[in-house]
C-alpha cells in the first residue's frame, strides 16, 4: 500500500506541473485518473472515472491570462476516493470533482502571485549574467507547481476511508439519485463552454448539422469526424472563391469572436 501511496503522490506532482504548463496533458482526468487507478490496482475503475470526468472537464481551459477550473487536483483526489480504500461510486466521484476543481483554481491563482519573488530573483541573476541560476529558478518554479497539487492532495488523502464511506451511506436517497442524474447531465456545461469559444453566426449551422447527423446511431464518431472535416474543406473552398480574398474573408469573423471571447473570459 505504501508503494501505491507514493505512486499516487508522484502522479499528483506530475499532474500539478501538467496543469500549469499544459504540455503533456497528464493532468487531464482521462490520464490522471487512469494512472491513479493503475497505481492502486484498479485500472478499470480509474479509466471509467477518468473518462466520465473527462467529458465534464473537456471545456475547461486556460486562455490568455485567465485560469480555468483545475482538473489536476480534482482528478487525482477523486480517483483516490473511487479506486482507493474508500471505494466511492463513480457518479459521486464526478460530483466531488467540482468543489475540488474550484479549490484547485484558487490555489493556481495564488501560486501565480506566490511565484513573483522567484521571478524577481531571476532579474538579479540576469543582471550579472548568471544563466545557470536562471535555469535553477525555472526548475524551482516547476517544482512549486507540482507541490501546488501534491500538498492539497496529500492532505485530502489523510481523510480516513471509513469517514467517506459513512458519509456516503448517510446521504439521503434523493441526493444519491440526484448525483447520478447530474453525472450524466453536467457534460452540457463543457459543451457550452467549448461552443462559446468558437460560435459565430456563420458557424452555428455546422453545430446543428452535427447534432442532426449524430442522432443516427449508425454513424460512428470517426465517421462524423470525416463528415465534419469534409464540410470544413468544402466551406473554405467556397468561401475563398466567393469572398473578396482569403485574408479579408476569413480573418474578420475569427478576430471578432476573439475579442468577444477575451472580454467574456476576463469576467470568469
Amino acid at each position: 500500500m505504501n508503494v501505491s501511496i507514493l505512486a499516487v503522490l508522484i502522479i499528483a506532482f506530475l499532474a500539478g506541473i501538467g496543469g500549469v504548463v499544459d504540455e503533456w496533458e497528464v493532468h487531464q482526468p482521462i490520464i490522471a485518473c487512469t494512472l491513479v487507478g493503475v497505481a492502486l490496482g484498479h485500472p478499470l475503475v480509474g479509466v471509467t472515472l477518468g473518462a466520465s470526468l473527462q467529458l465534464i472537464t473537456l471545456g475547461w481551459m486556460n486562455i490568455g491570462t485567465v485560469v480555468g477550473p483545475d482538473p489536476a487536483l480534482a482528478a487525482v483526489v477523486t480517483a483516490w476516493w473511487v479506486a482507493g480504500p474508500a471505494h466511492l461510486p463513480v457518479a459521486l466521484g464526478v460530483i466531488l470533482a467540482l468543489p475540488l476543481a474550484w479549490v484547485g483554481q484558487w490555489i493556481t491563482r495564488g501560486m501565480r502571485q506566490l511565484i513573483i519573488p522567484v521571478v524577481n530573483q531571476a532579474d538579479q541573476a540576469a543582471a550579472v549574467g548568471n544563466l545557470r541560476r536562471i535555469n535553477h529558478l525555472q526548475l524551482l518554479c516547476a517544482g512549486l507547481q507540482g507541490l501546488r497539487t501534491l500538498l492539497p492532495a496529500a492532505l485530502l488523502m489523510l481523510l480516513p476511508a471509513a469517514w467517506l464511506q459513512t458519509g456516503y451511506q448517510t446521504l439521503p436517497d434523493v441526493l444519491r439519485g440526484g448525483f447520478r442524474v447530474a453525472a450524466g447531465m453536467l457534460v452540457v456545461v463543457s459543451f457550452a463552454l467549448v461552443i462559446n469559444t468558437m460560435a459565430t453566426r456563420q458557424l452555428w449551422p455546422f453545430f446543428f448539422l452535427g447534432f442532426a447527423l449524430a442522432t443516427d446511431q449508425h454513424l460512428s464518431l470517426i465517421a462524423l469526424g470525416i463528415i465534419g472535416v469534409g464540410l470544413a474543406v468544402l466551406y473554405l473552398g467556397w468561401h475563398g472563391n466567393s469572398g473578396a480574398g482569403p485574408t479579408t474573408g476569413a480573418a474578420t469573423p475569427t478576430s471578432a469572436t476573439d475579442d468577444d471571447l477575451d472580454r467574456e473570459l476576463d469576467d470568469l
Binding site: F191, F207, F208, F211, V229, L231, Y235, P253
Partner: peptide
C-alpha cells in the same frame, strides 16, 4: 476557421 467548423460540428454531435 476550418478548425472551428469541425469543432462546432463535433460538439453538435457530442450533445
Amino acid at each position: 476557421l476550418g478548425a472551428s467548423i469541425v469543432g462546432m460540428f463535433i460538439m453538435g454531435a457530442l450533445v
